[in-house]
Computed example of a mutant assay.
Amino acid sequence: MASYLSNNVFVSSLMFFVMTGSLNAQVADIKAICGKAKNQSFCTNYMKSNPKTSGADLKTLANITFGSAQTSASGAFKRIQSLVNTTTDPTMKKAYTSCVGHYKSAISNLNDAKQSLASGDGQGLNIKVSAAMEGPTTCKDEMANFKVDPSAMKNSDDFQNICGIVLVISNMM
């Protein structure tokens, strides 16, 4: 009798975890996510342009957008670093060098946020991605008074918009 009861509890527990896992793997509501994003049209275009987002659950979508944020930050860092190396104007070189430092900080914060994402800690992910967004924002603010290469600021805008999507998703986790 004890063996039967033990098996029954085991099977019931197993079914609970299987059902809980399948509930967590529901397809993410992209319209709801983009409806909460700061730049809704960017979010919608981003989601439509990436075939991996279609049918993805929330955790998968978080990983996809977070990966894009890392790629965007890395691309912006490399682009601005190349401007530091090619510009001859000392004032612009100093401004670009400052931006490189801000992007290093952003990349470091994203690396810290990766742990929160892996553990499913939405609040921690939100805090660390918000911190990552500060560097490029500061860079853009510093560059407002200069005639800068437009590609440097385009990367900053894309980064902010992608991080904005990650923030919305982190609030839903």
Score class of each variant (00 low, 15 high):
25 A>V: 09
16 F>W: 13
30 I>T: 11
81 Q>G: 03
69 A>H: 03
71 T>Q: 14
51 P>C: 02
90 P>R: 09
80 I>H: 07
36 K>S: 04
109 N>E: 12
44 T>G: 01
23 L>P: 04
85 N>H: 09
113 A>G: 01
65 T>C: 10
96 Y>D: 05
91 T>W: 07
113 A>L: 02
110 L>T: 01
24 N>W: 13
58 L>I: 02
98 S>T: 12
11 V>W: 13
118 A>N: 12
28 A>G: 04
62 A>D: 06
93 K>W: 04
80 I>F: 06
49 S>M: 00
42 F>C: 00
59 K>N: 07
81 Q>K: 11
54 S>H: 05
26 Q>A: 15
56 A>C: 01
48 K>C: 01
66 F>N: 02
60 T>N: 10
97 T>C: 03
94 K>S: 14
5 L>D: 13
112 D>E: 08
85 N>D: 13
111 N>P: 00
69 A>Q: 09
26 Q>Y: 15
16 F>L: 15
78 K>F: 06
44 T>P: 00
45 N>A: 10
102 H>T: 08
23 L>N: 14
25 A>F: 12
23 L>S: 13
104 K>W: 02
89 D>K: 05
13 S>L: 15
121 D>Y: 08
37 A>K: 03
92 M>S: 07
34 C>V: 01
33 I>S: 01
44 T>M: 09
28 A>S: 09
76 A>W: 03
26 Q>I: 13
24 N>Q: 15
44 T>H: 08
91 T>D: 10
5 L>G: 06
104 K>P: 00
33 I>D: 02
114 K>F: 07
116 S>C: 05
6 S>W: 14
